[in-house]
């Protein structure tokens, strides 16, 4: 869900520029950042809705699983981990939104989003993480998923249990700044100044 659905967050921003109805939108509301803020609210609401859906589906599956297999029904949910799952989901949506603001181009933003969210972790970060020791220290400062995993799951990227420390929060915060804060700032700066044709 954090891989496919954030594309909506991209389309919300870019479709208006490829269909050119941004011209009408920004004529009716010349305060462009107000429009962009409304879009961010909509994207965040969608992100929260997907989490609720996942939560309900998870609960149902748990019940179903216990009923079918006869295993004892176990409800185990850590409040902090749930919170961080929500934050991670919001961060992925926001990253899609941010990259879309930066590029204002649908194919470009989707491609970049998948490179950052999917290709790099699988093809580059993953192998580096398992091969080199230094990567375990460096990657949490670069990759949003690697940084958030300890907070969401209580384990590191490789699945080993970790004790969450201050540095984990710092890494989570920094990677969100890196992949959301910086592109969204540059993107909104561009949008507020761009000539709409």
């Amino acid at each position: 869900m954090s891989i496919l659905v954030p594309v909506f967050g991209i389309l919300v921003v870019t479709s208006e520029w490829s269909q050119r109805n941004a011209l009408t939108t920004f004529t009716l509301e010349p305060h462009r950042l107000r429009v962009m803020g409304a879009k961010l609210v909509a994207v965040s609401a969608l992100a929260v809705a997907t989490i609720l859906l996942a939560f309900v589906l998870g609960a149902l599956t748990n019940l179903l699983c216990a009923a079918v297999t006869g295993n004892p029904l176990v409800w185990e949910l850590d409040g902090s981990q749930l919170l961080w799952t929500v934050i991670a989901q919001l961060a992925f949506f926001a990253m899609g939104y941010a990259l879309a603001c930066l590029l204002l181009n649908t194919p470009g933003a989707i491609a970049l989003f998948y490179v950052v969210a999917l290709v790099l972790p699988l093809v580059v970060w993953g192998p580096l993480y398992f091969i080199f020791d230094w990567a375990k220290d460096v990657l949490p400062w670069i990759d949003i998923n690697t940084a958030l995993t300890p907070l969401m799951a209580g384990t590191d990227f490789a699945g080993d249990a970790v004790v969450v420390e201050t540095i984990n929060y710092l890494q989570a915060g920094w990677t969100i700044v890196l992949w959301v804060g910086i592109p969204v700032t540059l993107g909104l700066w561009r949008i507020s100044r761009a000539e709409v044709k």
Binding site: S15, E16, Q19, R20, N21, L23, T24, T27
Partner: peptide, 12 residues
Amino acid sequence: GSLLDASAQHAG
């Protein structure tokens, strides 16, 4: 009221 480009609307 402005009409700058009648095609600049969502085609769908």
